[in-house]
Design a protein around this nucleic acid. Structure first.
Lengths: 137, 137
DNA sequence: AAAAAGCGTATACCTGCTAAACAAAGGAGC
DNA sequence: GCTCCTTTGTTTAGCAGGTATACGCTTTTT
C-alpha cells in the first residue's frame, strides 16, 4: 500500500496555487468544493465534504482571511450564507484545476489507452480492493 | 480515488485489539513496528516509521501508560533504550496480526490466484500509479 | 581532557477535526 | 401576534498526530 502512503503525504503538503500564500490541504479542498458549487451554504459544504459544519466554518474563516472566498447572505433566508470564490480564489481554483489536468495528462492517456480486457480486469480488481478495505471498518 | 479515502478513514479509527483500551492509529502502527523489530531503539523506530523521534517518544509514552510496551536500557550503550512489547502488548500485536491474516485471506487468495499475465499488468499499473503520485510532490 | 555527535525527552506550536454551547433567524401551530 | 422548535453559522475546548527546538545525558572522536 505504498501508493496510499505517497498519496497521503502528498495531499497534506501545503502549496501555492498562483497566489502568494500557502494553501493547506483542507483549504484547497474547500476551494475546490466552492469552485464546483458556487453559492453553496456552509452546512451544504460540510455535507459535501463529510465533516462537521464547525470544521467548514473554521477553514472558511482562514480562507476569508486570505481573501479567497466571500460569504453573502442568502436573500431568501438571512440565516443562511452563500459562499463564493473571490477573483483571487478563482486564480487558486483554476491553478489547481489546471495543475491537475496537466499532471493527470500522461496518466489518463495511459489509462484510457488500455485494452478493454485490462480495463475490465482493473475494474474488478479495484472493486475487490474497495470491498476488502470496506470489510475492515 | 475512493479506495484511498476509505482506507484513510479506516486507518484513523481507533480499535481494541484483545485488550480493554482503544488503540489509535499511531499506537497500533507502533505496536506493529515493535512487534516486528523487538528490541529496537526509539531513533530506529522513528527512522522505520518516517516520523521524528519526538513523535515516537510521545506515542511510546502513551503505550507505556497503557502497559503495552517497556523500555530497557541497552546494556551496550546506556544512552540507548530498547523497546519491547509487554505480554499485554503481545496480545494486541497478535490480535492485530490475526485480524489482518483472516481479513486478508480472501483477498490474498484472489490476488495470488491471478494469472501471471494479469499480475504483470497490475504491477505495471501500480508502478505507473505510484509514479503518477510521485510527480505531484 | 575536551569537543563533537548521538540518544531520548519535554515543550511550544501547528493542522484538522469533533462535540457542545450559543445567538440569530425561520417556520409551524394556535 | 406569540410561543415553541428547528435550522444556520460561529465559537470554544479538547483530542490526535505531527514538527522543531532546546535540553540533559551518554558515547565517541580528536
Amino acid at each position: 500500500m505504498k501508493a496510499v502512503k505517497v498519496w497521503q503525504d502528498l495531499e497534506k503538503q501545503p502549496r501555492k496555487f498562483g497566489i502568494e500564500q500557502d494553501l493547506h490541504s483542507a483549504e484547497i479542498h474547500l476551494i475546490e468544493a466552492v469552485g464546483h458549487h458556487a453559492g453553496v451554504s456552509v452546512t451544504d459544504l460540510a455535507e459535501l465534504m463529510g465533516v462537521t459544519k464547525g470544521a467548514v466554518s473554521q477553514t472558511l474563516k482562514k480562507l476569508e482571511g486570505k481573501g479567497l472566498v466571500s460569504k453573502i447572505a442568502d436573500p431568501d433566508n438571512s440565516s443562511r450564507l452563500l459562499v463564493h470564490l473571490t477573483s483571487k480564489g478563482k486564480v487558486a481554483f483554476y491553478a489547481h484545476e489546471h495543475w491537475h489536468e496537466t499532471m493527470d495528462g500522461g496518466f489518463k492517456e495511459y489509462f484510457f489507452g488500455m485494452p478493454e480486457e485490462q480495463l475490465v480486469f482493473l475494474d474488478e480488481f479495484l472493486d475487490r480492493l474497495i470491498d476488502f478495505f470496506g470489510k475492515r471498518r
